[in-house]
Nucleic acid binder design. Structure first.
Length: 312
RNA sequence: CGCGGAGUAGAGCAACCCGGUAGCUCGUCGGGCUCAUAACCCGGAGGUUGUAGGUUCAAAUCCUGCCUCCGCAA
């Protein structure tokens, strides 16, 4: 089968790699244009582009697919099927309709839950016990297409978004191959989504990482692991920003205002709104490298009784 | 030149402003106490202070170049 692939970030790479090894003919790989990244604004190639080049695939980075621009490219490539994994742009109707088998998307949630951007973050932040990947036949809406295939995956209580990213991207690749096989053999059934049960999530912002210590410990822990490793949760101590990288719910409760630091048996605990504590395991002070809680305390980064400030 | 912080024993820091041969917490090694211990007590090892040069009687400390790491911003 002649397949065109569309994707941009790390999450898409396992799918592209699986596709490359599948024996299908890859007629082209779409991804977002190179963007300036890093402290020095260097132009950076999206992970998918790097992977595509490694395989010698043709790379296309159109700024827009609208106004027939996308279709013009498809006419040239003549794919039977287009696989879309975290591409980052809405595909217009004429584009979706062009390939013989249409466009199929791999989405990292159990649709219709968490339609939209960053579904994995939201699932972890919500403290969900289960997530998965959904393969769907794309339509014009945002993740509203008919479901072709679903694969579920449990979310361990302390798992971070980063860990789930890895597992889900691998699972996504497996689901994708299975779906392609199904499409070729005509064995897949299309199941419409229950639109009434749909939830949609938006882009993440950095400000979301600001910890409000008045919230329950469980919620704070979910926020920290849900935003790990990007954009990251943070608080403020002595006027400096402190990134909170890893934590866990402590069975200890503590007196004191929310945000109070307690040091017990070498553990760095913080009192939360419900009186329960979260134990910080790994932090990163502004301008410093990441370090475990013990190092932070040894260097006197925080002392018993300190107050974390709640940044706006 | 986008703004800013930092490179000192295995780890995290102090001493730098007001130059004078390096200190703290932890780890590590040995010994002691204890039924026992990640607890406590005693003792030891471990650093040419990122790198190159300059100023000086003397530089971790002042000056200059270079390398590296990181926060903000993207």
């Amino acid at each position: 089968m002649k397949i065109a692939f569309m994707g941009t970030p790390d999450f898409s790479v396992p799918c592209l790699r699986a596709l490359a090894e599948s024996g299908h003919e890859i007629v082209g790989v779409f991804c977002q244009p190179d963007k300036p990244v890093g402290r020095k604004q260097e132009l950076h190639q999206p992970p998918v582009k790097q992977e595509a080049l490694r395989h010698g695939f043709r790379v296309l980075q159109p700024t827009s697919l609208r106004g027939g621009q996308g279709v013009a490219l498809l006419k040239e490539l003549q794919p039977d099927l287009v696989i879309v994994v975290a591409y980052g742009k809405i595909l217009p109707a004429d584009f979706l309709a062009f390939p013989k088998y249409g466009c199929v998307n791999i989405h990292a949630s159990l649709l219709p839950k968490y339609r939209g951007a960053s579904p994995i973050h939201w699932a972890v932040m919500a403290g969900d016990a289960q997530t998965g990947v959904t393969v769907m036949q794309m339509d014009e809406g945002m993740d509203t297409g008919d479901i072709l295939l679903v694969k579920k995956l449990p979310i361990p209580p302390d798992a971070t978004t980063e860990e789930m990213f890895e597992r889900l991207s691998e699972l996504g690749a497996a689901a994708m191959l299975e779906a392609i096989r199904g499409i070729e053999e005509g064995t897949l059934t299309r199941t419409p989504q229950d639109h009434a049960a749909a939830t949609t999530v938006g882009l993440l912002t950095k400000e979301m990482g600001a910890i409000d210590w008045r919230k329950p410990a469980k919620e704070i822990h979910n926020l920290i692991r849900g935003l790990y490793s990007w954009p990251g949760a943070y608080t403020s101590l002595h006027g400096k920003r402190l990134k909170l990288l890893r934590a866990r719910c402590s069975d200890k409760s503590g007196k004191g205002a929310p945000g109070t630091v307690l040091i017990q048996n070498g553990a760095l605990l913080v009192v939360c709104g419900d009186g329960q504590c979260v134990e910080l395991l790994e932090v990163q002070p502004e301008g410093k490298k990441r370090m475990d809680a013990a190092s932070f305390l040894n260097g006197r980064g925080a002392a018993d009784g300190d107050q974390f400030e709640m940044t706006e």
